[in-house]
Structure formats: structure tokens, C-alpha cells
Design a protein around this nucleic acid. Structure first.
Lengths: 209, 209
DNA sequence: GCCTTGTTTGAGCGACTGCTCAAACACCGT
DNA sequence: ACGGTGTTTGAGCAGTCGCTCAAACAAGGC
């Protein structure tokens, strides 16, 4: 039992990761953020690594579930871009994506953390994949891009930009604006006339061979 | 003087960051990697933060200079994509981009590091910006995307994907493949006939208003 | 009342952290 | 040979790290 303490520690770990970074995240700092004794980290999780791994899963599942309904309603690229902007605003406040960045940095040399972080990221990837398949399927680009790969690229890039925001908020804003613009341009391909669409598809077929 | 020791420490810092991560990068671990006494960190740089900041500048300038000539020769999107692939292979071995990821993670709560990392990233951004302006200027998309913002997005995304590679190498490969594919599709827009190009430009103009 | 089971606590271990410092060192002009 | 200058060294300080442990605690069955 004592799920309450476990949860306090998980929340404390997420808060510490966003506020202090992976370098200053320790059993003591997490326990302080959770308001409990530091020995409980080892009683409940065995090690700091294991706590962070579980916190990654806990936090990611929580965030993904928060957006699942809204994501399911997205059916055009334009809607997806708008959703991305809204989500970015919400997550910046919660720092949820920044957590993945910190874990990703820490995971480079810790196999246990690497597995947990990869699993956490794949939750996001799975969601993005579904939406992209739906959105791109209806576009002239449908069938020409590997949705599985693109979903991974989108998720990883999002984390990179979130980290970038921590050192250059203005630059990150411009980066996101530019991507939104670029997305809107791709969305505009949907509205091309039938002749232009045919010419475009013909070109795309040749480019992918 | 004693530029030799300074350089040894800078190289040692870069090596430690890639091999151990920001969380395990300390004055002692860097000095060990450099093969010198740990007190020299403080004699030459004053603090660990300052050493890492200078290492960021040192490493980034070195890598950017390494690619400047080749980047200047890139004039089409196709060439740019090929260059990106080659550079990725070279940098993965050197771990130079992974260093930026580690510094980015550490910089979230350390103002001194944040400034240095932002400066290092801006060196890459400046290069990407020049190439993008040249490459996109010749494409139907020219004038429709904010090159300054897009360059920042590209740089930050590259770092994110590099970090992702540390936890899921196969996934990162697919992500990069998909991006390359997507780029090839955009490049194919260049080869559209004049009628389709006109229709496309018309659509783009309407989409950006 | 007592004993068992599951949590929580504070103290403490050895190792590590950033950083300081007196002492030793190497190399210079004189 | 001498002093001066810049560099390097090992020891050491106070503090934190991951982790362990005996002891205190709460709660329930008997």
C-alpha cells in the first residue's frame, strides 16, 4: 500500500526534474520536493534510477491521456497545427516535455533510464502516428511519407525545441511559428485544383524512386 | 600562456559530456579525461560552469568551421539533405551534437550555461539560415517561410533527434529517413510544370493571409 | 493487553562534489 | 647563482551523493 507516498515521490521527481534539471535531481532533492523522508525513495523504489524511470512512465501516461480525446478529434493538418500550439502552451507551464528532455539527457549513459525514456517517448509517438496517418492520408502527400518515421521525428524534434526554449525563448517562439507556417503551406496543397494535384502526385512518384 | 593545458581541459570537457552526460561531468571527471590535476580547472577557468561554457564555444566553433566550406557549396534542397545525412554520420561518431543536448539540459537552470549554449547553437543556426535562404529562395516555397525561424527549428530538432538516438537508435534512423523523404518531396516541387507552379504559388499566397 | 505487519524516521557510512591553498615546480632575465 | 613569474600539485575543507540500518511508529487481528 501507501500509494500516497509513492505518488508524492513521483510528482516530486517530475517537479525536481523540471525545476532543477537532471544534474541536480537526487534522492534528497526529490524527497524534499515531495515533503517526505529521503530514505523512502529507496524503500519504495530501490534506487534513484528506478524512481526516475517510474516517474517517466507515470508522467507521460498522465499527459498523453490528457490529450488523447482532443487528438482523436483532429482530422486535418490545420487542426493538428492548432492543437500543437495549444498543447505547447499548456505543457510549457507544466514543464512536462522538458522532463523528457532532462531524462533523455540523463539516459544517454544509463541503460535503465534509456529504456524507460524510450518507452515514455513511444507513448507520444504512438499518438502522433495515429493522427499523422489520418491527416496525411487525406493530403496529396498521403502514401509518400513514412508515417512511423515522421511521428518519431516530430516527437524528438518537439523535445529538442522545448529544450531550446529554456535557453532562448524568443528563438524557440520563432522556430515554432515557422513550423506552423510551413505546416499551413503543406495544408494548402490539399486545396490545389485537380490538374495541379495530378501533376504534383506525378512528381512525387518520380521523386520517391 | 599554457594554452596546451587549457585545450586539454576543453577537449576533456567535451569528451566527458558525451561519454558521461551532464549529470556526471565534474571538475574531477573532466580533469581525469584530460589527464591533468583537477585544481587546474579552477586555475584556468575559475569554475566548472565557466569551463563548460567555454567548451561549448570551443567545440561548436570547431565543428561549424569544419562544415562551412561544404555548406557553402550546397545550393539545392536535395544537396542539403544529402549533406545532413553525411554530417549526421560524422557527428554521431564525434558526439558533437550530443554535447549540445547535454549542455541544453544542464542550461535549463544555470543562466551562465544557458547563455553559452544559446550562443553555441546560434553559430549553427547562422549557417543553416544562410543555406536555407539560398535553397528555399529557388523553390516555389521561397518567400513563404520565415527562414530565420525555420533555421532555429531545424537546429533544435536536430539536437532533439540526436538525443533520441541515444535511447532508440533504430527509431532515430527511421525518423531521419522520413525527414529526408519529406525533404525530397518538397524538392520535387521545384520540378513542377509552370502551370502547376502558378497554381501552387497562388494557393500559398492565400494560405499565408 | 500483545504481537505482527507495513511505513516512516534520523543518523550514519564511504564516496564524491566545488573550490581553496600552501608548497613545489619549471622557466625566465640578470 | 639568484630572484621572479607563471603553472602544477596534493592535501584538505565543508557539503552533498546513493544507500543502509536500527529504531520508532501506526494499525489491525487476537
Amino acid at each position: 500500500m501507501s500509494a500516497a507516498t509513492r505518488e508524492k515521490l513521483l510528482e516530486g521527481a517530475l517537479r525536481t526534474l523540471t525545476e532543477q534539471g537532471i544534474a541536480k535531481t537526487s534522492a534528497r532533492s526529490v524527497a524534499a520536493a515531495a515533503g517526505v523522508n529521503q530514505a523512502l525513495v529507496f524503500y519504495h523504489f530501490g534506487s534513484v534510477d528506478e524512481l526516475l524511470s517510474e516517474a517517466c512512465r507515470y508522467g507521460t501516461e498522465q499527459r498523453v491521456a490528457r490529450y488523447r480525446e482532443r487528438l482523436a478529434a483532429v482530422s486535418t493538418l490545420g487542426e493538428l497545427l492548432e492543437f500543437g500550439r495549444v498543447m505547447h502552451e499548456e505543457e510549457r507551464a507544466a514543464g512536462a516535455v522538458a522532463v523528457l528532455g532532462q531524462l533523455l539527457a540523463g539516459a544517454q549513459t544509463q541503460p535503465r533510464l534509456a529504456a524507460a525514456t524510450a518507452a515514455g517517448l513511444s507513448l507520444w509517438v504512438a499518438e502522433v502516428e495515429q493522427v499523422l496517418a489520418r491527416v496525411l492520408g487525406a493530403s496529396p502527400l498521403g502514401g509518400f511519407v513514412d508515417v512511423v518515421g515522421l511521428a518519431r521525428a516530430v516527437a524528438a524534434s518537439f523535445v529538442g525545441i522545448e529544450l531550446y526554449e529554456g535557453v532562448d525563448a524568443e528563438g524557440a517562439r520563432r522556430a515554432l511559428d515557422a513550423l506552423e507556417e510551413l505546416g499551413a503551406l503543406v495544408a494548402a496543397l490539399d486545396d490545389l485544383g485537380p490538374v495541379a494535384q495530378r501533376a504534383l502526385r506525378h512528381r512525387l512518384r518520380r521523386a520517391t524512386r
